[in-house]
């Protein structure tokens, strides 16, 4: 499983990266952490003529926390997110999700931009981005643009990125201090991709839930918001009956395909269970 031949470039600015990608007309690939791309090269399912290494592009490495929200540069590694004490309060849902990303060594290399661009339907960060209505800042030869997470993911390993564009930043909206949240994932083994995962949060107003956001990972060709489950909890005070309704609504909202690891019916039920458990975590209710 030796990698196929390719050329290599290691520019220092986004504009140089974009120029190289544009010059190669879809045959060049940006190399971020390499934790998904290099295995694809090893299996020779990706055969780029040029790899454009982003590791020296300093403008992609920032973690910014402002009163508008959080901005993660595309080359921020999982490890840096987990090590940043500010993020534990600035975005605890992000931290809860990133804790499930792959393994120790992968987290030392893998990047947020790489994960977003790879767009695995079972990956955590794309799910968080969709759940939290993140904005994806990208730059290409036509200039910079911002894409809503819901529009960014278009299918398995397929995004709205043009071949000359790279992700520069993922922007997560401001996280209110008292927001309630939960993240539940079920994988075959620790660090494996999710068979199903639920990311959710809601705010409280007079003891009632509002602004519920419930995201589902691993149960469709891309991460989804589960509107019906959100509707089931908005305006309620979370109790057993509400949780049961949300679980049922979550299951009913998806129609996963069968694959080698599980039947669609299993994943359909599982996402309900993940929503149920994440909601219990959020509401501080014990398992019955």
């Amino acid at each position: 499983m030796k990698l196929p031949p390719f050329d290599y470039a290691c520019p220092t600015s986004v504009s140089e990266v974009v120029a190289l990608l544009a010059a190669h007309d879809g045959e060049a690939k940006p190399l971020a952490g390499g934790q998904s791309l290099v295995p694809m090269l090893a299996f020779r399912v990706a055969l780029p003529s040029l790899l454009v290494d982003l590791r020296k592009v300093a403008e992609l490495r920032h973690i910014k926390i402002t009163n508008e929200g959080i901005a993660l540069g595309a080359m921020v590694r999982w490890r840096e997110i987990l090590d940043d004490a500010r993020l534990r309060t600035a975005h605890p849902l992000l931290i809860a999700a990133v804790a499930h990303v792959a393994h120790y060594q992968i987290r030392n290399r893998g990047t947020v931009g790489g994960s977003m661009a790879h767009a695995d339907p079972a990956a955590e960060l794309p799910g968080i981005a969709v759940t939290c209505e993140a904005k994806i800042a990208v730059t290409g030869k036509a200039g910079a643009r911002v894409i809503a997470a819901a529009d960014f993911f278009q299918g398995p390993l397929t995004t709205a990125l043009q071949s000359d564009e790279i992700i520069t930043e993922i922007r997560l909206p401001l996280w209110p201090a008292k927001r309630r949240f939960g993240f539940q994932e079920f994988a075959r083994r620790r660090g494996d991709f999710a068979m199903a995962a639920a990311a959710l949060f809601y705010d409280e107003d007079g003891g009632k839930a509002r602004n519920a956001h419930i995201g589902a990972i691993g149960v469709a060709d891309r991460p989804l918001r589960l509107k019906a489950a959100e509707d089931a909890i908005n305006g309620t005070s979370i109790d057993e009956a509400v949780i049961a309704k949300a679980e049922a609504a979550a299951s009913a909202s998806v129609d996963p395909a069968d694959d080698i690891h599980a039947s669609g019916a299993y994943r359909k039920a599982l996402i309900g269970v993940m929503v149920e458990r994440a909601l219990r975590d959020a509401a501080g209710l014990k398992t019955t």
Partner: peptide, 28 residues
Amino acid sequence: FLEHFIYDENGQLLTGSFADYLMPTASD
């Protein structure tokens, strides 16, 4: 619990990588 070589009806091995052929890890 984990390991399974799954073939399709065309005799193609569907669990032909360590991402799909699941061996026990330290936490299992």
